[in-house]
């Protein structure tokens, strides 16, 4: 599991790779939140393109970042989702809170 963060005045991009489960979501959370809170960008992009596996911890991860971003007044988009991860996030109703984009 790895995380790469880049930032411009309009967007914070968080690129995730590997497997997201309850064990490694904790470390990802800290890094992502720090970047989101430090930035004043109105848009946060969570890039799931290199995510090879996720369980419901991936949904919890997006939900948690949504709460942080909302309190900072920014919008979240989750991009490069596999068909499977897109369906799981829709099942959880995340499409009502954030923008979901497939690969």
């Amino acid at each position: 599991m790895a995380i790469r963060i880049s930032s411009t005045p309009v967007r914070v991009t968080v690129e995730l790779s590997g497997e997201i489960d309850h064990h490694n979501a904790a470390a990802l959370r800290l890094e992502a939140d720090e970047a989101i809170q430090r930035s004043l960008a109105p848009n946060v992009r969570l890039d799931f393109g290199e995510v090879t596996f996720m369980d419901s911890s991936g949904i919890g991860f997006v939900l948690g970042r949504y709460r942080i971003a909302e309190s900072c007044g920014s919008h979240i988009e989750v991009v490069n989702l596999s068909g499977r991860n897109y369906s799981m996030m829709k099942l959880a109703g995340l499409d009502r809170l954030v923008t979901l984009k497939r690969k």
Partner: peptide, 14 residues
């Protein structure tokens, strides 16, 4: 609460 989505069983079922 917190980061747990409460979806564990729903995912297993689906």
């Amino acid at each position: 609460g917190g980061e747990r989505a409460g979806l564990g069983f729903a995912v297993m079922e689906s």
